[in-house]
Amino acid sequence: MNTPPLAYADLFVSALIVLGAGFALVGSWGLVRLPSLMERLHGPTKASTLGLGAMLVASVVWFQLGKGVWTTHELLIPMFLFITAPISANMIAKVHLHRLRTGEASEPAGPAGPPPPPPGSADWATHEVPHEGTPGDFAGD
C-alpha cells in the first residue's frame, strides 16, 4: 500500500540521503583540494556534522514512517560526533603546530596564509612540560 504520506516520507528520506551524501562528498573533495592543513581541517567537519546528521535523521524518519517504530537512539551518533569532532580537530591542529615548530612539517602558502602567531612572547601550548607532582612528571625519575 503506497499511501500518499508514505510517498512523501520516501521523498523526504531520499532528499535527506542525497543531501548528506553530497555533503560527505564535498567534505572529502575539500580534504583533497585545499592547500594547507589548517584549511583542510574545514572540509571534513561539514561531512561529519551536516552529512552524517542528515543521513541519521533520514534513518530515524525511515524507521518511524516505514515500520512504525521510533528509533531515536540513532541520534546518539550525531550527538557523540558533535562532542568529539572539535576535540579531534583540536588535537590534529596541535600536532600540526607542534611539527611546524620542530621543523618536521612545512606550511604551504594558501589563500588564507599561515595562521597568526600567538600574542606576546607566548607560544601555542602543544608540548607543555608536565606540572610538578602530576603523573606525567618524570623529572625525578
Partner: peptide, 27 residues
C-alpha cells in the same frame, strides 16, 4: 600526505564516511 597530521585527518574522515555507509546500509 604530505604530513603526519594530514594522514590522521584522512583516517578520521574515512571513519566518518564509513559510518555514513553503515547508516545507508541500515536503511
Amino acid at each position: 600526505g604530505p604530513g603526519v597530521a594530514d594522514r590522521i585527518l584522512a583516517l578520521d574522515t574515512m571513519v566518518i564516511n564509513v559510518i555514513g555507509l553503515i547508516v545507508l546500509a541500515g536503511i
